[in-house]
């Protein structure tokens, strides 16, 4: 296996332009090294991008831009501020401290695990991903980038370079809740992120709900979102959202939990998340 260790974006894109088809991009390595050891991936080449300084930036004035190499640990510390607590909370639950200090947000997204913790949080913030190649650049919604279990629309010659999120406005609150068998170092049985925005009168004007570990990819629960919007966060509204949160979702039976458990737990998580969002929004 070839190893290409690069320290500039151009060098990385050069490698991908010629070797992209059989090349595995390696950043923190917390997923890739495990997959290599298990024989789940057998790339002809590894492209080590971790030393590309240009991919480490964090812009927080106005819209958020995260370089692909921003680590979970940085996010967990809350560098994005109070409007993005779901992102911090999700990053803080990715593996343990050792994986958080090297694991990257770009890697977590590109790994496209059904259980990826940060993805639901990014989805409720309408995140976009920017992909670069020697030929050019494109920016697409994260929801369109992830197409299935371990599947994205990244072309072989593309590198995910940045993740963008619009600024959250006044009256917003967000949260990430994770269900596991123990209190840390868990692969999510279910992950649920929510973001609610309220107007001065307490009406929910914007709602986002996203789930991990219930299907082949993390996804928005648009039925629940629709149920939450349009009035104050009263019990009936939350009940309606809880009833709708699994619409179109077919929770999976796997080693970690049964589909039946996931069905039981998700509506309760939604109720809990709604309460926390309202509190954080000051409503």
């Amino acid at each position: 296996m070839e190893l290409h260790a690069v320290d500039s974006l151009d060098a990385a894109l050069d490698v991908l332009a010629t070797r992209g088809e059989r090349c595995q991009v390696l950043a923190g390595g917390t997923d890739v090294m495990v997959q290599l050891a298990r024989g789940e991936i057998t790339p002809a080449a590894l492209l080590h991008v971790e030393r590309i300084e240009a991919l480490r930036g964090i812009e927080v004035d106005g819209p958020i831009t995260l370089g692909a190499l921003v680590t979970h640990r940085e996010l967990a510390k809350g560098v994005l501020g109070d409007g993005f607590r779901s992102v911090a909370e999700s990053a803080a639950t990715v593996g343990g401290r050792q994986t958080q200090v090297v694991g990257t947000i770009g890697g977590n997204v590109c790994n496209a695990s059904p259980a990826a913790d940060t993805v639901p949080a990014l989805l409720v913030h309408d995140a976009t991903v920017t992909l670069r190649s020697s030929a050019g650049s494109r920016t697409v919604p994260l929801s369109a980038f992830l197409v299935g279990r371990r599947a994205t629309t990244r072309a072989p010659d593309e590198l995910l370079t940045a993740i963008g999120m619009p600024a959250t406005g006044e009256g917003s609150g967000d949260v990430y809740l994770k269900v596991g068998r123990r209190s840390a170092m868990e692969v999510a049985i279910v992950g649920l992120a929510m973001r609610l925005r309220f107007d001065e009168a307490g009406t929910v004007t914007e709602a986002r709900v996203a789930l991990a570990s219930v299907g082949p990819r993390p996804q928005r629960a648009t039925g629940a979102e629709a149920a939450l919007v349009g009035g104050p966060l009263e019990p009936d509204r939350v009940d309606a959202a809880a009833s709708a949160v699994l619409d179109g979702v077919e929770p999976v039976d796997d080693l970690r939990a049964t589909a039946a458990y996931r069905r039981r737990v998700v509506p309760g998580l939604l109720r809990r998340a709604a309460g926390i969002c309202a509190q954080r929004a000051g409503r």
């Binding site: 068998r181 123990r182 209190s183 840390a184 170092m185 868990e186 692969v187 080693l255 970690r256």
Partner: peptide, 28 residues
């Protein structure tokens, strides 16, 4: 509370690594 070591109908363990065999952590 945490450690699951189940046997399938085929006599094989279902949990086969320390990723799925959940030991409690200090925080638990």
């Amino acid at each position: 509370l945490h450690e699951s070591l189940r046997i399938g109908e085929d006599g094989r363990y279902r949990e086969r690594t320390l990723e799925s065999y959940r030991l409690p952590l200090a925080v638990d």
